[in-house]
Every structure is written in C-alpha cells, then in structure tokens.
Design a protein around this nucleic acid. Structure first.
Ligand SMILES: [Mn+2]
Ligand SMILES: [Mn+2]
Ligand SMILES: [Zn+2]
Ligand SMILES: [Zn+2]
Lengths: 140, 140
DNA sequence: CTTTAGTTTAGAATTGTTCTAATCTACTTG
DNA sequence: CAAGTAGATTAGAACAATTCTAAACTAAAG
C-alpha cells in the first residue's frame, strides 16, 4: 500500500465527494475508495473501520460514523436496518431490495423489477412515501 | 391497583400464556394484559416498561425484555426492525406489513393482501424464506 | 500566507440490551 | 396442604453500538 498514493481511481472518488458537496479529506477519500472501489457493498461501521485499519488508513471510529452518515445524507449511501443493534450501509443507492441470510448475516441485492407492490393503503394526507423496503429473511 | 385483582379479562390472558407453554406469572400476566387488552399494538421494551409503571405494575426492565422475547419465541408477538437501536414488538402476528412514519416513529399495519410480490430470485439451495417484511417509509 | 468554516479525534458519555447470581414462585408430588 | 424443583424475576453490573464533546487539524477562500 505504500504511502498515500493518488491512484488512477482517485479522481472519480474525489469528484464524487466534491459533487456531493463534501470536502475531500484524507479520511473521506480513503473510506470512499474502500466503499466504491468495486461493485456494490453492504457494510457496517465497525467492518469498514476494520477494513480501513487493514489498509493502514489511520482514522477513528467516530470518523467512520461521521462519514457514513454524511455520505448517507448526501445520497452516496443508503442505510438499511435489519437487525436492531447494528446498522448497515449500502453503496447501491438505486431502488432495490434485499435477501437477508439470517444465519450468516449476509445481504444480497434483489433488483427492483423483481418485486411488485400491488396496491397500497392511501399514504395518509400530506404524507409522501420516502422509500419502500422489502427484506426477505432467509434461513440458510 | 389494590392487590392483584383477577379481573374478567384475565382468564383469556391466562389461557393464552398457558397455551403457549409459559408460566402465568404476575409479571407476565400484567404485561400480557397491557399488550393484548385492546387491538393490535406496536411497542418498544422501554415504552411497555413505562406503561407498566404507570399502571403500578412492579417489575424490572429485564423482565420486560425477558417477557417480550419469551412471547416472541412462542409466537405471541413478532419482532419488527425499523430503526437500528430500538426493537419493536408487534402483537399482530399474522402476515402483514407496515407503514412507518419516520417523523413520529409511528407504525401502522398494512394487511398482507394489499401487497403482492411479483417474483423472487431463487431463494438459494436449501434456504427457506422465513419471512418477508415490507416497510413503507413515509415522511409525514 | 492568513483566516475560517468544516473536519477529525480520543475519550467520555449515552443508550439499548443482555448477563449474572441471588431470590422468589408456580406448579408438581406426596 | 407441605415440601421440592424447575423456571422466573430482579437489581445491578456488564456490554455493544453509537453519539457527544471540546480541542486540534486542515481544505478552501480571500
Ligand atoms: Mn455497526
Ligand atoms: Mn444499542
Ligand atoms: Zn443493497
Ligand atoms: Zn403490525
């Protein structure tokens, strides 16, 4: 990992943070790299913190929480609640749902098209639906 | 509250506990009365504890947690996860879904018939779906 | 540069929940 | 009924996840 190399993938991550109106600090850049480097991910604050340490990124757990919340606030991440006592952040912010493997705690995406909601009771006056979460809990 | 009055509604609650294979202790009876007395409810451990205190029912928070988990284990309640950091128990154990009013934190039932799931990616080999949760998050 | 508003940090504090070990009690048996 | 016992309750300690605090830092603006 040698020092803090400004690799080829950085410009993208940097633009991403700037575009969201977030200062591209060393810590945020490092976390954004870990989060968005490859494909969609579902992470926990603690897991991301551990991963950062493994990559020799020095930051505090508080910063990981700050970043996850800031990213979520700017729409770069989405928070998923599965298990009280542990929140999970999803790098896939498009409309989709989840399989939740209760045994392993793993999450797997389900494309939005595969789920169709037939009808809905009137979302009460002046109330707008902000999101529909479908979580399919699986034993295996 | 004058002693532990065996009111008219007790027999039902008592049978309910016995039927589930749970000893009808004073604390469980009191909590079951609060929970099942009228219509479906969504409660938090802390909220139920507060409610019990208001009704001059003396028990500890640990007992509330124990009871909620025991009841859930026996199928008398169902646990809903909405908000990391707070689990919520539902006295309606039939198949149904929820509106979640993010502002107020209130939950409202949606009958199962009103939601239809079109298709599902193969629930991986040997894995069985234990439950499908649909949570419609509403702003209002 | 200098300034400043936003960010990070360590550690303390809070919150929700679970655990422990002692005490109690509902129910069985005699 | 009178033990006896498995199961339940309890206070308080312990834990784990998360948030807060206030001081030190730093990106970006001037
Ligand atoms: Mn976590
Ligand atoms: Mn917690
Ligand atoms: Zn996802
Ligand atoms: Zn419900």
């Amino acid at each position: 990992m040698r020092a803090r190399s400004t690799t080829a993938s950085d410009p993208t991550v940097l633009e991403r943070l700037r575009g969201a109106g977030l200062r591209p600090t060393r810590q945020r850049l490092a976390l954004a790299r870990l989060l968005f480097a490859r494909g969609d991910r579902h992470v926990t604050a603690e897991a991301l913190f551990t991963e950062a340490k493994q990559h020799r990124v020095n930051l505090s757990l508080a910063t990981v929480y700050n970043a996850l919340h800031d990213f979520t606030g700017k729409g770069l991440l989405r928070e998923i609640v599965l298990d009280s006592n542990r929140s999970c952040f999803d790098t896939n912010t498009s409309d989709h749902h989840h399989f939740y493997f209760e045994r392993s705690g793993r999450l797997e995406d389900i494309p939005a098209e595969q789920v169709r909601i037939a009808a809905l009771p009137q979302a009460p006056d002046g109330a707008s639906v902000s999101r529909v979460d479908v979580i399919i809990r699986v034993d295996g």
